[in-house]
Design a protein around this nucleic acid. Structure first.
Length: 576
RNA sequence: GGGCGCGUAGCCUAGCCUGGAUAGGGCACCGGGUUCCUAACCCGGCGGUCGAGGGUUCAAAUCCCUCCGCGCCCGCCA
C-alpha cells in the first residue's frame, strides 16, 4: 500500500500526495484490490482521463506485492499478488485462531449500557432489538481492543416498578376485582416468575384509569419508595422478575457484567449533591411553586422542551436527574460511555447532553438509537395492547420449527443432539434476523421473516460452518498447523474466498468505530456465501495434490466464520 | 406546529458518514443441479424513475435545498 501511494505521488509530481491518498480506494473485484480514479487529476491537467490513466499505469512497474498495475478506462487498478494474499491471509487466520479478527488491548475502558427493560413482566420482543444490538456491539468493541463493561440499568424508582410491588405486597384477595378476574385460573405452579408476577400488570394498568382509590394507593406507594421506605417485597419481586427476564436473554447468550439499580443514586446521596449543583448552575431557575428547572435553549433543544425540570415542587428527583447521576458515575469510571436506546428516547438523550454540559462535564455518551419493532398491523408492540409477543414464546416457536427441519434431514442424532441443534439454530436465526438490519431502520415484526432459516439468515451461516467442520473431520490427516502451498490456492473461487476471509479484521474495526453492527452480519453472510460457491465448485477431499492446501483454506474459513458468529452471539455448530 | 429517524424491484435489505467503473444480497416467482466433501446448498432467469423536484460537480443512491409519505418524541412519567 505504501509503495503504491509512493508511486502515485511520483507520477504527476505537482499533485498533492494527500489528494492521492484520499482518492485511492479499496475496490473489490476479481482483477483489482485497489483502484485509483484519475478524473480529478485529468481535469486539473486538462487531458483525457483514459490517456492519463494509461500514462500513470505505464509508469508504475509491478512489484512483489502488486502483481498487476493496469489502466482500465479512467482508473488505474492494482492487484495484490494472489499468492501473497493467500499466504498472508491463511497464515494470519490459522495462526491467530480464535483471536483472528481481534486486536490487541488498547487500554481504553468503555461502558455499554443496553436493554435496561423494566422488570414488570416477561421480556417481550419489543425490547429484543436493544438487547441484541447492545450485546453484539459490546462483543465487537471487545474484539477491537477496548475493555468493555456491559451494564443493565434497573428501574426500581418509578410508577411501573411500584405497580408490581403494589400487587405482590398484598394478597390477590385484596386486588381490585377486575384485576383478579383477569388472571383467574391462569398460570401454573412451575411457571417462570416473570410470567407469574407480570400477569396481573396489564389489568392493573387498565384499572388505574378508572379507579381513583387504587390509583391513589399506588401513588402513595410511589412516594414511599421515593422516600427510601419501600415495602420488603419491592426489591425481592423486582429481582425475581428480572431473573426470569435474564433467563430468556440467556438463551440468546446475552449476559451483563453489572446491574445498576436506579434507587442507589438516591440512597447514596449523589442525586442530592447533583441537585445542589444544578440549582447553582448558570441556567438554573426556580418555578413559582418551588420546582427547579434548567433553561436549556442554548443547548439546541427544541423550543417546546427548553425548560428541563430537574426537581419537583416537593423536592424529589426525576428520572432525568437520576439518569444524570448515573451518567456522571459512569464517566468517573469509564473513558467512553455508550447507550443503546430506542429512538423514542431521542429527546431524553439530548436533554441528558444538555444537563451534562450545564454541570461542566465535557464528555458525552455515544447514543446508538434504534427504531422500535412495530407490530405487523403497524402499531407499537405493547404489553397493554395485547400485541406483545414474549421472547420465550418466540424462541420456543423457533425451536420447534428448527426441530422439524433437523428431523427432516437427520436420522442419526440422539434426542439431546436434536435438542441442542434446534435451540442453537433457533436462537441463531432470531439474533441474525434482528442484527442484520441497520438500527435506525424501522422494522415490522413478522413471524415468517423472523423464523427464516434460508437465504440471508443465521442458519445459513451456521450451515456453512458445519460444512467446513465436516470437511475437516473427513480429511482425517488435516489438523493444525495445516501446511499449505499458496500457489495451489489462486483459482477463481479459492482466491475470492481468501479475499473475504482477509476482510474480517477490517470489518471488526469498522463495526467498533461506527457501531454499525449490521455490517458484521453482512460480512458473515458474504463469507458463508462465497464458501458455498467454493464448496460446490472445488473438490477438497478429492483435490489431488491441492488437497492439503484446500483443507488449510477450509480451516481458515471455518475459523473466520466461527469468530464472526461468536461476535454476533450465534453458536457455531460442528454439525446440523 | 417543532425535533429526530426512515423512504432503494411485489416484499425485505446493503451501499449514504468519506460522491466515482454495469446499485450488491435475500424472499417470492420461473428453469436447471444430489451414483461426488451435509440440497438449511448451488447455477441460470425475471424484476430498479435509488419517494418527488431542484441545486452543486467532469461525475449524485451518496452532498445541499424544497416538498411528499411513514414512524417516534415534544409530562413536575419512566
Amino acid at each position: 500500500m505504501a509503495g503504491i501511494v509512493g508511486a502515485m505521488r511520483r507520477r504527476p509530481s505537482e499533485v498533492d500526495p494527500a489528494t492521492v491518498d484520499g482518492l485511492l480506494e479499496i475496490a473489490a473485484g476479481p482483477e483489482r484490490d485497489l483502484a485509483f480514479p484519475v478524473h480529478r487529476l485529468a481535469a486539473q491537467a486538462r487531458v483525457r482521463p483514459e490517456e492519463l490513466a494509461a500514462a500513470i499505469a505505464a509508469g508504475i512497474p509491478p512489484t512483489a506485492q502488486f502483481r498487476r498495475v493496469g489502466a482500465d478506462g479512467a482508473y488505474v487498478n492494482f492487484q495484490v499478488d494472489p499468492v501473497e494474499l493467500v499466504r498472508a491471509t491463511l497464515d494470519l487466520a490459522l495462526g491467530r485462531g480464535e483471536r483472528y479478527g481481534h486486536f490487541a488491548p488498547t487500554g481504553e475502558s468503555v461502558c455499554v449500557e443496553h436493554t435496561s427493560a423494566n422488570p414488570t413482566g416477561p421480556f417481550h420482543i419489543g425490547r429484543v432489538r436493544n438487547a441484541i444490538i447492545g450485546d453484539s456491539l459490546a462483543r465487537a468493541l471487545r474484539a477491537a481492543g477496548p475493555g468493555v463493561t456491559t451494564q443493565y440499568y434497573v428501574d426500581d424508582m418509578g410508577r411501573q416498578s411500584a405497580m408490581i410491588t403494589w400487587l405482590w405486597s398484598r394478597p390477590p384477595e385484596r386486588w381490585p376485582e377486575p384485576v383478579r378476574a383477569a388472571v383467574a385460573g391462569q398460570g401454573s405452579a412451575d411457571e417462570k416468575p416473570d410470567r407469574r408476577r407480570g400477569r396481573p400488570y396489564p389489568a392493573l394498568s387498565a384499572q388505574l384509569k378508572s379507579d381513583p382509590a387504587t390509583a391513589e394507593s399506588v401513588a402513595e406507594l410511589v412516594r414511599r419508595i421515593e422516600q427510601g421506605d419501600p415495602p420488603p417485597e419491592h426489591e425481592a419481586v423486582a429481582r425475581e422478575v428480572l431473573g426470569g427476564m435474564l433467563a430468556s436473554l440467556g438463551r440468546l447468550a446475552i449476559t451483563f457484567d453489572e446491574f445498576v439499580w436506579e434507587s442507589q443514586f438516591v440512597r447514596d446521596g449523589s442525586v442530592a449533591r447533583i441537585l445542589e449543583r444544578l440549582r447553582a448552575a448558570p441556567h438554573a431557575a426556580q418555578e413559582e411553586n418551588g420546582a427547579w428547572s434548567i433553561v436549556a435553549t442554548q443547548y439546541g433543544l427544541p423550543k417546546e422542551s427548553d425548560r428541563v425540570v430537574v426537581q419537583r415542587k416537593d423536592g424529589t428527583s426525576l428520572y432525568v436527574t437520576r439518569d444524570l447521576a448515573y451518567h456522571l458515575a459512569k464517566f468517573s469510571r469509564f473513558e467512553r460511555v455508550i447507550d443503546v436506546l430506542g429512538q423514542d428516547h431521542q429527546l431524553h438523550a439530548r436533554t441528558l447532553e444538555a444537563l451534562l454540559a450545564e454541570l461542566g462535564e465535557p464528555r458525552r455518551p455515544t447514543f446508538v438509537l434504534y427504531q422500535d419493532l412495530t407490530s405487523p398491523e403497524g402499531g407499537r408492540m405493547s404489553t397493554r395492547g395485547g400485541s406483545a409477543v414474549w421472547l420465550d414464546d418466540l424462541l420456543d416457536e423457533a425451536r420447534e420449527r428448527a426441530r422439524r427441519e433437523v428431523l427432516q434431514r437427520r436420522d442419526d442424532l440422539g434426542p439431546a443432539e436434536v435438542e441442542a441443534i434446534s435451540e442453537a439454530v433457533a436462537t441463531g436465526a432470531i439474533r441474525y434476523h434482528v442484527v442484520r438490519v441497520a438500527p435506525e431502520k424501522p422494522v415490522k415484526f413478522r413471524w415468517e421473516e423472523a423464523l427464516s432459516f434460508e437465504g440471508r439468515s443465521g442458519p445459513f451461516v451456521q450451515y456453512a460452518y458445519a460444512r467446513a467442520s465436516s470437511v475437516l473431520r473427513k480429511g482425517d490427516a488435516a489438523r493444525p498447523p495445516y501446511p499449505f502451498e499458496p500457489a495451489l490456492l489462486v483459482g477463481g473461487e479459492e482466491l475470492a474466498l481468501a479475499r473475504v476471509v482477509s476482510r474480517l479484521p477490517r470489518t471488526v474495526a469498522y463495526v467498533a468505530r461506527s457501531a454499525h453492527v449490521h455490517a458484521l452480519a453482512g460480512y458473515a453472510h458474504e463469507l458463508a456465501d462465497q464458501f458455498n460457491r467454493f464448496y460446490h465448485a472445488v473438490p477438497v477431499l478429492a483435490g489431488g495434490e491441492a488437497r492439503e492446501s484446500r483443507l488449510a483454506l477450509v480451516a481458515a474459513v471455518r475459523q473466520a466464520l466461527g469468530n464472526a458468529l461468536r461476535l454476533l452471539g450465534i453458536a457455531p455448530l460442528e454439525s446440523m
